[in-house]
Design a protein around this nucleic acid. Structure first.
Lengths: 175, 175, 175, 175
DNA sequence: AATGAATGAGTCTTCATTCAT
DNA sequence: TATGAATGAAGACTCATTCAT
């Protein structure tokens, strides 16, 4: 699977270079590989995006699981959200995946479930200490964070901490 | 200018139907109008989007100016943000315009300035009552609201009030 | 006929500016006149080109008639061809008209006949002195000169006199 | 590369039939080939024209190199120019290429240089016998011949030999 | 498994021309 | 006479996808 790796590397390079179109033809050319090869590994653009997300997903899930174990659950949540936000800012396509509903049966949806599960645990713990509203669940937090990512991205990036702070305060129980 | 209006109506319909591509050819066909006619009125997709935004912008600016006069500024802000959010949910392209930096010299950027000005006034008043953080300005609020719109849209829409509530609480001065 | 003149002026300007497309729409706009107005005066691009040629034609015919009266017919021919060449280099569209067969019945074809008639006289006189081949007629000379114009134009213009000299020597009876 | 050849054949046919537009879409249809295939082989009209020219260029360069070896250089020149003229009359687009300056770096400009080099040799030899003017170079001859081609084409073709004769006599040193 | 030539539907855009006002 | 909005045929070009080798 040397080719698969090469394709992924090129695709990542394209995204990093600001080209989000991920045209399989172009990637094949850059990877020095036939178009057909790309299509065997990734039947469509989405499959490629998911594959690209996998590594990020693993990182993020790891971080989430670590956060559950944090002494102060709200602090753990803060750390986790900051980590996730940076990940998304760095990889817009990963942000798309996190924001999407996640097609049933896809690899990504499994990882998403794993992620949400960890976050659910974290939220439950935080709720016990009265640090988080009753009604928000892991999916809400994920979506709201994706929203914050859009907000940060539409500005110059300097407002990252402010916007994240707004989200975190907003998640607390209303006074 | 019967045709111009017809084109705008069709374009709005397309957006409402979930097709955000705004293909000028398709719009021409649906509007029962020659392609050339569409191109005469709107030389490119962007011009069309801006025209579509204009009406929404006027509504929104009006609402913002009304909100400044509200007895309770924070209640005014809540009402305004809910109004804006609904507008954006209804018209994704308008959301894009609100989220964009606003190209210099465009019609949209003038209206954006007008909007931000009104919101600035509202925020200033709210700050006097201690209802809003010091550090957020009108642009921040606009961007954050666009973020919330993404969050609501990526879900099933049922979380609109919750997500807006999170934003509003988050805007208050941190405890 | 204020408009007609205005249109012609603009068209000349376009040609002078290197735009040979003579799009009637564009000319109308530049002339501050409706497209329809242009179309009434000049039903198509060709009619406009012919009208533009008229003035040049008159000049050229005048020059040709003067040349017939020259003391030395070959010198007269040389002067005439140089004049015509400069005219064509200055106005590529006029060159096109001179090179074309000239649609029957058009205004241009009448003037072309007038021109050729004068040149025929000049050639006849020159032939009497043995300065010109037997077999070339006015039409040949016109076409060959158009050819020289292409040659000059495809270079940098500096070869004008050389190429004209080649033509003139070539017109002499072969040794 | 069966398709490439087919495309070239069709393109040649179009030109021969008097259609100089070389529309890639039309050629694809006539060649019974997808548009994309044509675009793959020839990204634009110019690339196609150059490819079409290549074969003609080779013929012509061969002929020129042969002419250099002719016993009588002026006779060789006559034969070469007649050959080239027929080639151009047969293929107007090739005439365009020969007449153009030749974009730097293009395949055509390399072949043009080769052609001009051979003609330069021929002219040098002819000059030694006093058969050709001092001041004309290979480029001049090429341009003048293109001019003659225009002249022949604008007439009915019957004047080919006459016009070529005019050029050849004109190239001799003036008396 | 790998290749990459081929496909062609789809989209964008221009511009000569008409015609109701 | 003049206007200019409207037309739509025509042409250029892209790119996701297939399939014979």
């Amino acid at each position: 699977m040397r080719n698969r790796a090469r394709i992924l590397r090129i695709a990542r390079g394209q995204l990093a270079a600001g080209d989000r179109s991920l045209q399989l033809n172009a990637i094949a050319r850059l990877a020095g590989v036939g178009v057909g090869t790309v299509y065997r590994h990734f039947p469509n653009r989405h499959a490629l995006v998911e594959a690209l997300s996998e590594e990020r997903f693993r990182e993020l899930i790891g971080e989430a699981q670590a956060a559950v174990a944090a002494e102060d659950p709200f602090a753990g949540l803060r750390r986790l959200l900051r980590f996730a936000l940076d990940l998304m800012l760095d990889a817009p396509d990963f942000a798309d995946v996190l924001e999407s509903a996640g097609g049933v049966g896809s690899q990504a949806s499994k990882m998403m479930a794993e992620l949400d599960e960890a976050v659910t645990g974290l939220l439950d713990r935080a709720r016990l200490t009265g640090a988080v509203r009753d009604c928000v669940d892991a999916e809400d937090v994920r979506r709201l964070l994706c929203g914050v990512q859009h907000a940060v991205r539409s500005g110059d990036g300097a407002r990252r901490d402010l916007y994240l702070g707004v989200l975190l305060e907003g998640l607390r129980p209303p006074r």
